[in-house]
Design a protein around this nucleic acid. Structure first.
Lengths: 229, 229
DNA sequence: TCAAAAGTGTTAACCATACACCCATGC
DNA sequence: GCATGGGTGTATGGTTAACACTTTTGA
């Protein structure tokens, strides 16, 4: 590598706040640190950006390596660069948040042998570095964004009931929603496709399944449509 | 500097997209490059992050050094990290956008002797590096954000007329607004304080001046109020 | 037959939009 | 006195919010 700039360079990492949803709780994916500093503590999955890869590629690579997750909704969140955030040297972290369909990853493969686990967001362990601050920022972003972009579907299985969706919104918005108004509003967007499938073996009337029509959303968005719950 | 991590480090810069507004146009502050690469071309003000300063401190320092600007609304925008965005070595740029009261900086002091100038956003020169992409991202952010946060006031003088404000919104939203509805809506927020001051020497009825009540905004926001134009 | 969640419409209050004329001032 | 932009109110249609009962199913 040729160094043409005269300034010392900080280290740069990418870290990911990975959210999942399991019918009741918003969950967060954490890995246990194998090395100092903060050895043994839980932290966000992530690592150093390599010189040949973009930031996005870096997060995806780290997530695949550390957690086995490879299909997800990913968006850059914020870059954290306080001089003392890593005790060893100057480390700037480009943080991302991701939304995954939790049911697709019930078993997390920890290919490099470190522990990986899902935690309820409401009950997180103490985190390494300034990762608590990063998680807070991500939570704020997701809670705001779910109001005006249909990103909630990234957290649900392909097929879901309207009650599943409502529970998700109620959890993220932290407020109860009226069932009739919620259904009216969400169906009026024309973004949900009712399927000819119903719940099985439930001790009450079986709910119909729906799927999110992404193509339709892209189409409507080009015509100036704005999703809003 | 002790390097405890085993990976090569990219260079990290901070760059700022500085917007101003001058009664008719949204303007952008650019500096002319003194060195290769892109010598002589216009570029965003910015530079290398120093090891002891935070990213925010870095942008503020660079802006003060290159343009003399020291009071501004500043927010982190996005981090650009494509491997080939700088022809010399790997450079990751943490971009910020800033809003300034243009009237306060009619004369830009270029303390380190490079050229500094305001350009209408609608008529920008060719920019160095991937700075055009950064500007686009900033424009999208500002145009979206002005709808749901009272950031427009950062671009106006302390005292402004309702017509000034309306012109600003019309420019940024790229659509004409109804005068009566605009006034009703903006006054209803209770965020503007009418002053006992009127325009002087205008060839028509003198408009009243207003100022933005920031304290009131903070107060209302804590009670769950959301600004929306 | 009971418990549990699914599904379904109407009304009233509120909010957003459309729209046109008189006023004050300097030239 | 004319050109210029400042300032003001109302009516209508559309949108949102509040609200309760019947249906289906398994245990």
């Amino acid at each position: 590598m040729s160094v043409t700039y005269k300034y010392p360079h900080p280290a740069v990492t990418v870290d990911a706040v990975v959210f999942g949803f399991d019918d009741a709780d918003l969950k967060l994916l954490l890995v246990q640190r194998l090395a100092q500093p903060f050895k043994g503590q839980w932290a966000l999955p992530g690592g150093f950006v390599q010189m040949h890869e973009s930031l996005d590629q870096g997060v995806r690579r780290e997530l695949a390596e550390e957690t086995g997750i490879d299909r997800l909704y990913l968006e850059q969140l914020y870059t954290f660069g306080e001089p003392e955030r890593d005790p060893r040297e100057r480390v700037i972290s480009v943080a991302y948040y991701a939304l995954v369909k939790l049911n697709a990853y019930h078993v997390v493969a920890a290919s490099d042998a470190s522990e990986v686990a899902w935690f309820a967001v409401a009950d997180l362990p103490k985190l390494a570095f300034d990762h608590e601050k990063i998680v807070e920022t991500a939570l704020r972003r997701v809670k705001a964004k779910i109001r005006y972009e249909p990103i909630g579907f990234e957290l649900l299985p392909e097929k879901f009931t309207l009650s599943d969706l409502q529970r998700l919104y109620e959890t993220l918005l932290e407020e109860p929603l009226d069932k009739r108004n919620f259904r009216k509003k969400i169906l009026a967007t024309d973004l949900l496709v009712p399927l000819d499938e119903y719940q099985q073996d439930v001790a009450h009337r079986a709910a119909q399944f729906y799927r999110f029509n992404r193509a339709r959303y892209e189409q409507l968005r080009e015509r100036g449509f704005n999703f809003e719950l």
